[in-house]
Structure formats: structure tokens, C-alpha cells
Design a protein around this nucleic acid. Structure first.
Lengths: 240, 240
DNA sequence: TCGGAAATTTGCGCGAGAGCAAAGAGCGCT
DNA sequence: AGCGCTCTTTGCTCTCGCGCAAATTTCCGA
């Protein structure tokens, strides 16, 4: 197995605050693994025997309930730490991570987590920050689900995806991996039917451009207006 | 200001893995503060200048959106670390913490967080675990909001509250602090009207016992059935 | 002890969006 | 090149639970 060059990862948050020699040492303990599109990095309920850093690609993290309903928890993009179940004292992964496109990740054995933590205290900070910002995102989602209509939630979800994994194209910003209406529905707590209807309507208004597993944001500004619930800013009557 | 006796806190998760001398040292840096019922420990948006350990009481953590809608993020009970914004690299508190009953907390200056982290590496683990289990809870809530009906969500919320802050009474398990229908609504993403209706119905069936800012679970088992969505297990027709 | 504010209960009507059904479109695989 | 599977679109109906309104109860402080 080839070792990973430090220059690829040196400026990721996880490696900030480490001397080059330490970075090399940390890298030497990791294996680099390729995950073809559609394959699982780990499965919900499996023993949490590794933690990972995504080098390249995008993962969809999904979770199924006892009753069998599935939800998309989040997407992981390059440079992010994931699968850190061990750090939260979980023995098993609470969700499944599937490659949305061909991806590459570094894997460390969970068993070395505590040792690494002691050896490189800055790891603790970066893990805390990773988990912390995930907590912020998740709480934001709870607020959205509590207080917003479906249309606003979908707008928020798309804007978040574009920010995290948007690729500029001539027509606007395209989500940089295949994503179905069903996926969006599972991110926003609605049905693929409703998402499809909403996107169709938006497409007619020139807000987005759709396609099979493909979404392009054409007018992020107007989407923001929708997302923030400035209700009817566009179709409000002149004299209320 | 009186110093806090180690015996009060020695077996809390936060102090596990520290030698008694270290525990004393850590305690010496903290101030003990009393928060009368209804007062705020910190406000959403304020500078995150302290982090806390709740010694006694219960706090309600709430968050308002840009549009002014309020939600209850969670309740904090005795022994829990909270207000650790600094640890997640936030400069301001993302929510407000209000004493639901008269409470007492230890406060450390945020500025010493990093120093303490270096000095007591086990702090990192306990903070990670605190934040991690909060993340688990919050994600569970997202799943609930995505996939469950209001009635199931309310059942889940009450069971979680009972587990975290339940007090055994003759009639069942009572939530150990004043909590209004409005509060439950803000935890479950519904309205106080709907919560009131649900609780009234449950009271007639002998599942719960209500009162002003008071909820007693009389039959946790049947509530569990409701929560897990075993739809109509009780009113299902003999021959479907 | 009494007055008033806050919390709770309950009725009624409506609308967002889920559920069901079926047709249409795009892509991969042989 | 063509077949078939998956993804998407769209129509229709029905229901859960929200919004509004008003009565009632409970507690706290003067």
C-alpha cells in the first residue's frame, strides 16, 4: 500500500497545528482506500472499527429507523473527518456511509484513537470542532423542520448542498454529485412527489434547472428569499 | 465565594479520570453561581465567555429563528456540561439557557478552555462525549420529525423527558420540573393546541395525568407502543 | 382574600402536503 | 441499437394538524 503524501492533506483542519514530522507519522498509520460509487464505507449497526478522512469524492450518510424509514443525515465532502463513532464512545456506527461518486478515504483503526488523542492534543480540538459543527447543522435542521414549510426546507437544503458541494457552471451552480428527488426528500422530511412538484414549479420560474439526478441552481438569490420565508415577496399584492 | 467540595462532583463524567488533586485544582478555577427560576444563564447571541457544569436544577435551552419562532433545543439536568460553545470554536452562544427551577452551576472562563484541555486531556474526551451524545439526540429528533406523526413525537418527547428528569411518584413518573404544553409543542414541532388535545385524550385513556405545567406518565409501556408507531395496536380491527 | 395574568381546554374550518396511481423520460447494459 | 430498469412527472383525493376564537381553570401577588 502506497503511503499518502503530506502535501495532499497538510492544510486540512485535521492536520492543522501538527508539525510536518507529526503529520507524516499520523499518515503512516492510515490506509488509503478506494470506494467505487454506490459502495458502502461502513454500515449502520456495524462495529465501529475505523475512523476516516475523506480525501476525494462525496458520501451520503443515511440512517434507517426501526420502522424501516430511511433518511439522509448529511453528505460528506473532501477533507472532512467522518466515522468518528469511537470518539463519542459509540461502539457501532449509527448510520451508513455510501459513496455518491467514486471516492477515496484514509482509514485509521478506532483502537488507536485514544493513543492518538494523547499524542496529538490538537486532534481533540479538531474532532470537537467537527462534531460541534455537525451539531449546529443538525440543530438548524430541527428548527427548520419545526418552523418551516416544505418549500422553504427544500430551498434551504439546496442552498446548503450548493455551498458544500457546488460547482460553478455557466448556468449557475450545480450540485457536484448525483442526487435524486428521493434523496432531497429524505433530507427534508417530505416525499419525492412533493420535491418533484416543487422543483418543477421552480424550473418554470427559472430558479433551478433539473435533470436526472442533477440539480443546478440558477438563481440563488431568489432561493434565499424563499428559504428565509419572506413569504410572497414576489407575488404579494401591491396593496395588502 | 466558597469553594466547591470535590465530593459533590468527583463521580461526574467530567471529572472521571482525574486525580483528586487535579479535581481540586479544576474546581478552584470555577465560580459557583445561583440562578433563580426564570433567569437566564446566558442568552443566544451573547459572547461565549464561560462554560458551565450544572450542579443542581434544570435548564431549558431555547433558540429563536430569524423569523422569531422559538424552539426548545433540550433540557439540561444536574451533572451535565453545557455552554461549551468555545470548545466548538463558536464565539457566541447559539441558544439561550433559562433556569426551569432554581439552579446552581459552576462557571469557568472560556478563555481557559484551551489551557485546561492541554493540562487535562481527559477533558477532551468528556467534552467530545457530551457533544457527541447531544448530536445523537438531535439526529434522533430529525428522524422523528421526518418520519413520525405528531402523536408519536409527543410520546417520544415525554418518554425522553421522563428518562432524563423523571421522579417516581405513587401514580407513575413525574417530569421533575414545571413544563407547559407550549414547551412540549416547541420540543416536537407542533402547536400547544395539538399537544393539549393529545394529552387530554391520553388522560382519558389513563396514559398520563396532566396539570398546570405538570405531566405525570402513568403508563410508560403503552406510551412506548404509541411512540414506536405500532399503529393501532390497541384499536386495530380484529380482521383487517 | 381577591383580581388578573398565564396556562389550558375545546370547537370549527381549511389547506398543505401525503398517499395512491399511472404515464413519461433518461440511462446503462447486453 | 434496443430493451428494461430507475428516476421523474403529474393528477386526484383525503386527512392530519394548524390557525383562529373563545371559554375555563389555576396560580401568584397585592
Amino acid at each position: 500500500m502506497a503511503s499518502v503524501d503530506r502535501s495532499l492533506v497538510a492544510n486540512l483542519p485535521m492536520f492543522a497545528g501538527l508539525a510536518p514530522a507529526e503529520q507524516d507519522e499520523l499518515l503512516r498509520e492510515a490506509r488509503s482506500i478506494r470506494y467505487p460509487k454506490g459502495s458502502a464505507v461502513f454500515d449502520q449497526g456495524a462495529k465501529a472499527d475505523h475512523f476516516y478522512l475523506l480525501l476525494h469524492g462525496h458520501l451520503r450518510v443515511e440512517k434507517v429507523t426501526l420502522q424501516g424509514q430511511q433518511s439522509v443525515v448529511r453528505y460528506v465532502s473532501g477533507g472532512e473527518l467522518f466515522g468518528v463513532a469511537q470518539a463519542m464512545n459509540l461502539t457501532h456506527y449509527p448510520a451508513t456511509a455510501v459513496a455518491a461518486v467514486d471516492s477515496i478515504a484514509l482509514a485509521w483503526p478506532s483502537s488507536s484513537w485514544n493513543r492518538l488523542l494523547t499524542k496529538y492534543p490538537s486532534l481533540a480540538s479538531s474532532a470537537l470542532q467537527t462534531v460541534g459543527s455537525r451539531l449546529q447543522d443538525t440543530q438548524a435542521r430541527v428548527l427548520e423542520m419545526s418552523n418551516e414549510q416544505v418549500e422553504q426546507r427544500v430551498a434551504h437544503a439546496l442552498l446548503r448542498l450548493a455551498k458544500q458541494a457546488g460547482r460553478k457552471v455557466d448556468a449557475g451552480v450545480e450540485i457536484d454529485f448525483p442526487i435524486s428527488r428521493q434523496d432531497v426528500a429524505e433530507m427534508t422530511g417530505t416525499t419525492l412527489h412533493t420535491v418533484s412538484r416543487i422543483l418543477s414549479a421552480w424550473e418554470q420560474q427559472g430558479l433551478v434547472e433539473g435533470g436526472r439526478q442533477r440539480i443546478v441552481l440558477r438563481d440563488a438569490n431568489r432561493l434565499h428569499v424563499l428559504a428565509e420565508g419572506d413569504e410572497g415577496a414576489l407575488n404579494r399584492k401591491p396593496n395588502p
